[in-house]
Nucleic acid binder design. Structure first.
Length: 493
RNA sequence: GGCGCCGUACCCAAGUGGUAAGGGAGCAGUCUGCAAAACUGCGAUGCAGCGGUUCGAACCCGCUCGGCGCCUCCA
């Protein structure tokens, strides 16, 4: 039974879906005016994993993630670059899909854009005005916070407290400093739509209410986003939606913690952010490996806490992952026969699976779930030392694959994590290159394999000096060699 | 000022009242021409600090300290 920390109640609660075996969830995506950084990646990944785990647990998940494609920052960016707003948003929506795709983040069931829901937004705004929860001033529409008595229940704030901390430059036309715009009249040159209040565009918060209600209904199961969205964004969504419908909006509110650099929140204003594509560009590893490293890193901490990003952290993730892929490679190789203990394997797999489920059920403790997989890795390595049947080796690999898919890990093929075997000299005529690798990688791997073959020859002549030179040369290029007992050599990055 | 998150070994990180998992790094050993991998062993008498509750606390309560965040756009 899955338990989730619900920001609304401040407690961890057993998750029960409204409809049996079905989950409807909404996650706030990004405002598309720039490339995404790792903070965005973390949020996207956390909810990607939540979705995967719900599906693993047998739910059918309707997962909606929006794009905010009308906003001050977009307008500013478009003006700076002298292009239309929709050129900016189209570019960064595509970039979003590219970047998140590299991280193995699955597309949502629906990915609506604010501009596609102007009608819904206007309708919802009218509904709020009719109910007396919103008022019109000079073509702007504001939500009147004091008319929603429960305002502050998500962020645990009281209007009085907020008022005390409110800044000086409050718009005097507002009834209360915390009143927020549902509809903004537009200046010339800005994107604008016809509305009962004149030409204008939606405020930020209203779009999520309109889109979630449209795609998921007035009450749905899970609403997620980064912790910085709790106030005011999600607070305002609740006020609008519940105000308009008179029903509960989302039942479980899930928020992820920040990615930090040197203990500080990663943010544009501090300039301490790394974009996802920047990391891929700078990575010394190929794209699919870098993606898995990032995923492993981002999941190595519980989603609710802060996570410090650093080169060292990435290296540690890579090292930890190496151990898994080394094992997968061993599992794929022939040999290792002997007095196999296939029953012990089944026991180990079952133990790992139980532990994995138990920790994931406990508010998605991915760090502990990974620990369960590490335990299985250790168990399988030991069993392999004794010997396992071909069937058991396949079953072991399959166990890692099937649990790993929940985290989006361990799906790469036996060759793809840069573990390759150069055959014995007699077999050198055989081409063993994997078909999936890129041309660039093939060329580099060809060179490596040439060196390795030279070294095997040197070893045959018992010219260990030459053999060690080649090893050192490759080591300086980040290539590690492993001589296997059967005379073949395995290399990896 | 209000609200919230976090604080466990060199690093990451479990544990949520019964006497500190796991991984990475490091060191030592087995193996190896040498390495690598794997395996074995070592590694916090202590869980930010101080009090309290308890037979017993990293876990519960109180206070304090430290880091971060939100209250303005922010994943």
């Amino acid at each position: 039974m899955l338990k989730l920390f619900n920001t609304l109640t401040g407690r961890q609660e057993a998750f029960e879906s409204i409809e049996p075996r079905k989950v409807r969830m909404y996650v706030c995506g990004v405002t598309v005016y720039d490339y995404c950084h790792i903070g965005h990646a973390r949020s996207a990944l956390v909810f990607d994993v939540l979705r995967r785990y719900l599906e693993y647990s047998g739910y059918t998940v309707t997962f909606v993630k929006n794009f905010t494609d009308v906003d001050d920052k977009i307008i500013k960016r478009a003006n700076e670059q002298g292009v239309a707003c929709d050129a900016v948003t189209a570019k960064f929506i595509q970039a979003y899909h590219e970047d998140m795709g590299k991280l193995g983040i699955q597309a949502a069931t629906a990915e609506p854009k604010a501009t596609e829901h102007i009608g819904d937004i206007i309708q919802l705004t009218e509904r709020l005005i009719k109910k007396g929860l919103a008022y019109v001033v000079d073509g702007d529409v504001y939500f009147e916070v004091s008319k929603y008595p429960e305002y502050g229940r998500l962020s645990k704030r009281r209007l009085d407290d907020l008022q005390a901390g409110a800044r000086v430059d409050v718009d005097q036309r507002k009834h209360h400093p915390m009143d927020f715009a549902l509809w903004k009249s537009s200046k010339p040159g800005e994107p604008a739509w016809e509305s009962p209040w004149g030409l204008g565009r939606p405020g930020w918060h209203i779009e999520c209410s309109a889109m979630s209600i449209r795609h998921l209904g007035e009450t749905f199961d899970i609403h997620g986003g980064g912790m910085d969205l709790i106030f005011p964004h999600h607070e305002n969504e609740i006020a609008q939606s519940c105000g308009a419908t008179g029903k509960e909006f989302a039942r479980y509110w899930v928020h992820n913690g920040f990615v930090q650099i040197n203990k500080e929140k990663m943010s544009k204003s501090l300039g301490n952010f790394f974009t996802i594509r920047e990391i891929f560009e700078k990575s010394e590893w190929p794209e699919d490996i870098t993606g898995e490293i990032l995923r492993y890193f981002l999941l190595s901490t519980h989603y609710h806490g802060p996570l410090d990003f650093s080169d060292q952290a990435l290296t540690e993730a890579k090292n930890a992952l190496n151990g898994f892929y080394d094992l997968f490679h061993r599992l794929s190789e022939a040999g290792g026969l002997g007095e196999g203990d296939d029953g012990s394997l089944r026991t180990a797999v079952e133990r790992a699976r139980k532990s994995f489920i138990q920790t994931m059920d406990d508010n998605l403790k991915t760090s502990a779930a990974i620990a369960a997989l590490q335990g299985l890795r250790s168990d399988v390595n030991k069993l392999l030392g004794v010997g396992l049947s071909t069937e058991s080796r396949q079953a072991a690999r399959q166990a890692f694959r099937s649990l790993g898919v929940v985290l989006g890990l361990f799906q790469l093929g036996r060759w793809d994590f840069n573990v390759c075997v150069v055959p014995k000299p007699a077999q050198l005529v055989l081409n063993t290159f994997p078909p999936a690798v890129t041309i660039a990688r093939q060329i580099r791997e060809t060179e490596i394999d040439g060196k390795v073959a030279q070294r095997i020859e040197a070893k045959k002549r018992r010219d260990f000096k030459r053999a060690d030179e080649i090893r050192a040369e490759l080591k300086s290029l980040g290539i590690t060699l492993e001589d296997k007992p059967d005379g073949t050599t395995r290399w990896k990055r």
